[in-house]
Design a protein around this nucleic acid. Structure first.
Lengths: 110, 110
DNA sequence: GAGATAGTCAAGTGATCACTTCACTATTGC
DNA sequence: GCAATAGTGAAGTGATCACTTGACTATCTC
C-alpha cells in the first residue's frame, strides 16, 4: 500500500479546488458577476467540457452555484467555500496569538 | 497533448499545500508552537521522510520556516503564506461587493 | 570510539488530476 | 422541421502526488 492521506471533508476540497489556476480564475471571474459555461471557457483556453468538470468540483465544495435557464447554465459565486477557508485561517491566527499571549505571560511573570 | 494548466506562482502553491490534510495539520500544529520533524510526524501516522517532504513544500511557499539546531530541525509557522491567501479572498470579496454596489446604483437610478 | 538518535536522499509505486476527443442530448430561432 | 447553439457523459492519457523503503550522513551521549 502506498498509504491513504486520511479522509477528505469539505475544507480539503475547498483548498484543493482553489489550488488550480483555472478554477481560481473561474471564481474570480464570477465574483464580478454571473456567467454561462461557454463564457467562462472563452478566456481560459480549455474546452467547455473541462470547464464543466471544474464547475462540478467548485459546486461540490460551495464555491459556485448554478442553475439552468433553457439550454444555458448560469453560474454565480457562492460565499460558503470562501468562508470555510477564511475561518480556518482565523482559527490558525487564534492559535498563534494565544501562544504569543501565553509567552507574554511567562515573560511577564519573571 | 493533455494540456498545461498555466503557470504556477506562489498563490497556487499555497492553496495546493493547504489542500492536503497532513500539511494542514502540520501548519495548525505549528501555530501552537515550534516543533521538530519527528515530533510533527508522531501523530500523523506517516514516516519522517514524508513529513520532511511536506515541510520542504510548506517552506517553499512561505507557510513554514525552519532552522537546524544540532541534529534537530526546529520548525515554526510563517505568516507569509496565510497572508497571501487571505489577500486573495479579500480581493474576491472586493470584486463581489463592487459589483453589488454597481447593481445598487443601477437600481437606484430608476 | 560505539551506539543510539534525528534527519536526508534516491528511487519506486499506485492513485488522482487536469485535461482531451467523440458522441450524445436539450434548447433555440429561422 | 432543421440547423446552429449550449451543455453533458464516457473513456482515455500523460503528469503529478503522497506516500513508501532502504541506504546514508550528521550529531549527541555514554
Amino acid at each position: 500500500m502506498a498509504a491513504a492521506p486520511a479522509i477528505s471533508p469539505p475544507i480539503d476540497r475547498v483548498f484543493h479546488a482553489l489550488g488550480d489556476p483555472s478554477r481560481r480564475a473561474i471564481v474570480e471571474r464570477l465574483a464580478r458577476g454571473p456567467l454561462s459555461v461557454s463564457r467562462l471557457a472563452e478566456p481560459l483556453g480549455i474546452t467547455v467540457t473541462a470547464v464543466g468538470q471544474h464547475l462540478r468540483l467548485l459546486e461540490s465544495c460551495g464555491l459556485v452555484a448554478s442553475e439552468k435557464h433553457g439550454r444555458t447554465r448560469v453560474c454565480r459565486i457562492e460565499a460558503a467555500g470562501l468562508i470555510t477557508i477564511a475561518q480556518w485561517i482565523a482559527h490558525c491566527r487564534e492559535l498563534w496569538e494565544t501562544r504569543l499571549d501565553r509567552l507574554g505571560d511567562v515573560l511577564g511573570e519573571e
